[in-house]
Design a protein around this nucleic acid. Structure first.
Lengths: 355, 355
DNA sequence: TTGTATGCGTTATCAC
DNA sequence: GTGATAACGCATACAA
């Protein structure tokens, strides 16, 4: 009864060669006769050899440098969470030689992104984690990095027509679909629902359009179709009260609005307005556990938040890169994180959740 | 610039002793003069020494035997998931010397539990993971195992007045509270809501009573209190159609029932009845992603399921034991898993979720 | 009471 | 082309 896990030594013995030779074929370093090579490969296969990761990490002095190209949390606090997730992954993986250098850009300054991306290229890291919020501007870098054979993991925003090593994030379309369900369930009677985009460059943000499409399709898919109307509004805060004015106008123009769906993490801006105008009959669904959102969730102004699990996105992004670089494990190229439904009553278990 | 992580050798050099001596004080094996002992401890502290887990696991031939005392999935398929979670954790931890032996008991046979628990005691494992669904019968074993200094981790069911190494599971009370919210949000008008316990020995299952209490308290906490009535029903299926009869009786006796809350994983039993009787206006909330439940979730008969994350419970249970046994890491004694809200539209991301 | 030597499985550097 | 062999950091049997 062979109980012990089989090691390089075992396959060396079985093949009548030394461990050095086995190692050379297992790592494709050549300098091995074809005949021996095939024999060893076959035996390794038969014995179902699995390298001991611990021993490998212990002996390997190789440091894997990963560049994390992420927006500045100081400019938009949403990005605190992915940063925290990255930190958590680093903590777990540093003993395996994973190092992460962060390149922080201003999410409102394209130039800042371009600068930092250039730095990343110059640093020639072993892997790149990136939130490609500037769609168009990201594309040339992808081709650069591809040419340099640097694996890239994307999170937060999916980029059509580009296949990274991995994408980590949510299915935007389905999350909009879910938002439709949540508003509909709380208001089954015929009504008008509003999709609100806030302070976004919509045309450069296809994922927000996917959310809107999912939302519209939910209502279109209901049997009693026609009873629901979905309209869209694009809120830009050029001045302090600009958004308030736009919303007042909306409610003046459109009758029977019973629900609003905010497609990014800024539902609190709408919530504040609803509360001030005492529009208790209007339900509100948004994204992300931002402090301000939580305030209005607890007040009952926001009914549900869909958690994009931003911390998990950072965490799994680094993990995915590590799987590729050190563990040679291949993952599914798309990792959709769950669409967590957060309400006042289950919030507490998500704010301290680790992953 | 000292960059490398500090090792036993480093502190040995600094203390002018050998690595063997340092090792002896670090592991409290005695045979070291008090003077040297203190010096070493102080230096280790100063240098912030952290043992290299990899090297330790590599060299240690110690096998940690963990006994998992769990109900038979064949008797109640709910228990498949914790079993799968245990398997996943074992897969990740076996290279650290973690072995798990499963002791499977019939969840409907107290004697079966007693037998298996005795076996566990006889096996004298290094740790125990247990779903204590037989409350009273578990208690004497806890004292036995405590006397033997075997760490115990509980999952699924919290036991009052007993402090295990860790409890993994949900906050039953809060999940009932959440169920109240979900039914109320979908039916804000005055109505009657029913708490249904199915095929359970209620008096021996305090966690179900906690769910009921949370549910009741939700409605009691609403401003418009008095508008909602909450009643309880205990469904026992002595015969094929017994439950159908009880439910028919319920709807005959009580007017204006708009929602049902099933406190265990058997909401599908109620769902089947609601569908047959075409009671579309009655909402249904239950627990767990059982195949039958998913069927009715997709049919729209069940509106929401609260996911107890049973796979995660098994997974984190073993992880918690491993943290204690091999990594010497101390965890919070209570790990409440999130109350995941599952609906048709976000289901897909939970059925294949890994943890 | 203390120090030395050996091995865990893998990698990498040498000689041959 | 191939096979010894030394290291990685830690644990431990044994020698001193």
């Amino acid at each position: 009864m062979e109980n012990h896990t089989i090691r390089i030594k075992d396959i060396a013995a079985k093949a009548n060669v030394s461990t050095g030779t086995v190692d050379r074929v297992l790592h494709n370093r050549g300098r091995v006769s074809e005949e021996v090579r095939e024999r060893i490969l076959k035996i390794a296969e038969e014995l179902n050899y699995k390298p001991n990761v611990l021993a490998r990490a212990l002996v390997s002095k190789k440091i894997y440098d990963i560049a994390a190209l992420i927006p500045d949390p100081a400019a938009d606090s949403y990005w605190q969470a992915p940063k925290a997730g990255i930190g958590k992954a680093v903590e777990e993986l540093k003993q395996y030689g994973i190092r992460v250098t962060e390149y922080i850009f201003d999410p409102f300054q394209v130039n800042s992104f371009l600068q930092e991306a250039e730095k990343v290229t110059a640093a020639a890291p072993d892997g790149i984690l990136l939130a490609p919020i500037f769609h168009r501007q990201s594309l040339p870098f992808f081709t650069q990095w591809q040419a340099l054979a640097i694996p890239v993991v994307l999170f937060n925003t999916q980029i059509p027509d580009y296949q990274p090593l991995m994408y980590i994030g949510q299915d935007s379309y389905q999350s909009g679909f879910l938002a439709g369900k949540l508003l509909h369930y709380g208001c089954p009677d015929p009504a008008t629902f509003v999709v609100a985009h806030i302070e976004e460059d919509i045309l450069n943000s296809s994922h927000l359009l996917h959310k809107e499409q999912g939302f519209r399709d939910y209502f279109a898919s209901q049997a009693t179709t026609g009873a629901y109307q979905v309209i869209q509004i694009d809120l830009q805060s050029t001045s302090e009260t600009a958004i308030a004015r736009q919303l007042d106008q909306l409610f003046a123009d459109v009758a029977n609005i019973r629900g609003l769906f905010v497609t990014n993490s800024k539902a609190s801006i709408v919530a504040e307005h609803l509360q001030r105008r005492q529009r208790h009959q209007v339900h509100l669904v948004g994204y992300d556990l931002m402090e301000k959102n939580l305030h209005f969730l607890n007040q009952g102004v926001i009914q549900f938040l869909i958690n994009q699990n931003p911390k998990g996105q950072g965490y799994w992004g680094i993990q995915g890169l590590a799987d590729h670089l050190v563990f040679q494990k291949l993952n599914n190229p798309i990792k959709y994180l769950p669409l967590d439904i957060i309400t006042k009553e289950n919030l507490q278990y998500y704010i301290e959740a680790d992953k």
